[in-house]
Design a protein around this nucleic acid. Structure first.
Lengths: 211, 211
DNA sequence: GATACCACTATACCAAGGTATATAGATAAA
DNA sequence: TTTATCTATATACCTTGGTATAGTGGTATC
């Protein structure tokens, strides 16, 4: 059903539930469809694990022994860990569902649920994870390029993409025109921008205008 | 509580519910906090109304007499009518809630709910409506500028922001260099772009690269 | 037929961008 | 000490962008 494609790494489904029976049944369900599962009994146990750099999602019980799944989800989001989350719960209600979905959960399943519903949710979550991974790897590459610039080159890039002429940049930085041109040329090479339009779009992705 | 600010038009809250008692109680609740309400008993009645160009949201009953609120919401989204929607229902369950939230609803309230919860949801919805309105008015202005360009000028703009040199544009369009320069100059004036970087960002907003 | 708009071209000129070569001071690492 | 990197500058040269002026031809509107 789920084939291992060349180039795309094997996805991982994390399961965080304090009930051993649930952990077992879920992980065996996942294995039966060829998905790799990784189970955790507590928030602390999960936090001690470093997440693999593959498309992954988290199946999260709302009511954990020592924690609230919703709060933990919000904490993950606040920490910038963008892991698609699927909630499962035995004691759900509508306000809880709304809260979970507002926080960005992919799905919210009340027990008992159909296995297929969970598998569908996982498929969607992993798809989102792949997209985010692809997007972040692009912007990672961009950030690396930008970080490889010297301070001056970064300054010149910011000012250039904001629309300033070389002459204006030179005035504001108290430099000669030729110096600005050279910084600009080096910057374009390091950023691997084939033309100025491309550079402007890179700056947009890096949100250089805002910061 | 909700003051009429100068410059910001009076928001409208649409109410679509087939129960007259609900319509009455909701609209009097809204009026009591100074909000303008506009009530509808059926989907057809709502569709016959042209929406005002002010921040607005829709309070939508899930179970209507001749229609499904969730489906109607999806239809609105599909038609590009981006009106923040708050669902209310007397017979809700978790899957229904998930479906509504996935479609982009602002909130989902099961009766009986606290009045304050609804008012909070409305405040959030109207805030979103304002943001969308502001964003769309900006891109409307941009689209008007772009539409005011002649065909040639649009072509030249697309090619310029994709990074092509005037010479390359001239070759591809079988024009002389000077003709391209003139189209480009006229285009910059009409787009009110102060520099090329700004033009690239305008093109991004118009998503000229995709289409 | 006059007017307006669009598209296209040419000449001429100036401003701006970009590169190569060469030089030089400052600083930090091997 | 040598090496490397960053910073800054100058001269020279070429390409590209942009504008003004002037003119041609087509099309549509009044």
């Amino acid at each position: 059903m789920i084939k291992s494609m060349p180039g795309v790494k094997q996805p991982i489904v994390y399961i965080l539930d304090d009930d051993p029976a649930v952990r077992d049944s879920l992980s065996s369900l996942l294995r039966s469809v060829g998905l790799q599962a990784s189970v955790f009994a507590s928030v602390t146990e999960f936090q001690q694990t470093s997440l693999a750099a593959v498309p992954s999602c988290l199946i999260l019980d709302v009511r954990l022994q020592f924690a609230n799944g919703l709060d933990f989800h919000r904490q993950l989001v606040a920490e910038g860990i963008d892991l698609p989350v699927i909630f499962i719960t035995g004691h759900g209600d509508i306000p809880m569902t709304v809260k979970a979905m507002k926080s960005g959960a992919v799905d919210f399943l009340a027990k008992p649920f159909r296995e297929q519903d969970l598998l569908d949710a996982i498929a969607l979550a992993l798809q989102k994870a792949e997209q985010r991974l692809a997007a972040s790897s692009v912007s990672d590459a961009l950030r690396n390029c930008f970080a490889s610039l010297t301070n001056r080159e970064q300054q010149v890039m910011r000012m250039a993409v904001s629309g300033l002429l070389n002459k204006q940049i030179a005035d504001q930085l108290n430099l000669s025109l030729i110096t600005v041109k050279i910084h600009r040329g080096n910057m374009m090479k390091k950023m691997q921008a084939r033309n100025f339009a491309e550079l402007v779009r890179m700056a947009e992705q890096l949100s250089l205008n805002k910061a």
